[in-house]
Design a protein around this nucleic acid. Sequence first.
DNA 1: CGTTCAGTTGACTAAGGTCAATTCCCGTGG
DNA 2: CCACGGGAATTGACCTTAGTCAACTGAACG
Lengths: 194, 194
Amino acid sequence: MTSSHPLRRHIEQFTPISDEDWAMMEALLTERTIRKHECMIREGGMGRELGYILEGEMRHYYTYHGEEKTTYFYFENSLVGPYISCITGQPSQLTIEALSDTKLLVFPYTGLQKLYAQSKAWERFGRVLTEYLAIGLEERMVGLLTQSPEERYTQLLSSNKKKIIERIPQQHIANYLGITPVSLSRIRKRLSEK
Amino acid sequence: MTSSHPLRRHIEQFTPISDEDWAMMEALLTERTIRKHECMIREGGMGRELGYILEGEMRHYYTYHGEEKTTYFYFENSLVGPYISCITGQPSQLTIEALSDTKLLVFPYTGLQKLYAQSKAWERFGRVLTEYLAIGLEERMVGLLTQSPEERYTQLLSSNKKKIIERIPQQHIANYLGITPVSLSRIRKRLSEK
DNA sequence: CGTTCAGTTGACTAAGGTCAATTCCCGTGG
DNA sequence: CCACGGGAATTGACCTTAGTCAACTGAACG
């Protein structure tokens, strides 16, 4: 049974969804295009919507001491949005920006909350999705605590996140690894000389 | 309405639980004491149980290049366990050790899964709990990516996690901050000279 | 062609890591 | 009560590596 809708296929990687449950979600979706350098959410704004990327790529960053620190990237077929702001109801501390023209399906977080309330399958989806999110964050954190920048970079190269290296400007990758773009350039040189 | 059981009170910080739902959980609980330096789970073992600490403190660590890297601490009135291993069904990469004699209530993860399946309230609890877990991890990761070790230490001092500084040996705190015990000692000296 | 911006490179600085010696604290046994 | 032992924390000397600042290169785009 291959469901035709890409978002439904994505969701069903986490937990099965009945046609009826899916219909409730489908009713919430709107297609939107965000142009390069435009933002889905800016620091200080309230997170009200989540999205699913059909094509394009986005980054999210925090602003510290006036500098943008990019900490995550999103590609096609993934969920994106100011998740924490939606959960807490606090203004977003992060900004999510399109790195190229990006086509999304967006839906309001309040809509998702209604799905949670109306259907056990959706509640389960929310739990399982968040579990995977937490596992990813834990892995990332452990890498930051235990590996050198060079190890983190080589690991990124050989991971299933190669897309980041192939499609994202180096300055942002450096942020993601917790170093400066200058250092990343040197690490790359060091590695290429081996 | 103050429920008498401490674990129930803890759970109801996330979402309300009916008497009936609570009874299902209560039936799963066993009290256990883990002595200082003993482990709830060791690296390589399968995660089958979670626990709620009644008194004592624990740390969890990963072993890298033969060294123990402590990345988290648990105190009384908090949930503890090899959560990721339980979720993924993979052997645990981390070890959870008691830092002093620790009294816990433990319950099997399969039991929790049954609660998830049987009751919407439990499914919701699982989602909301994991959301808070993810928010904590995100904050921690952003701190590691954007702050200096000294900033991380001073922030820990002024946070609601002061307990860590008051009750945990410095060597483990250093790991938690992503530095060596020697460096932490120097940072402390630097700060005390101001 | 210039302009712009990302990436590279060089010179220098700063900060944490490493290794080893020393001190401090605390519990134990004489 | 004191002496000893062991682990934790501190300190010193030195090393390594990332950060900083600035100059330069190179590719993309108008």
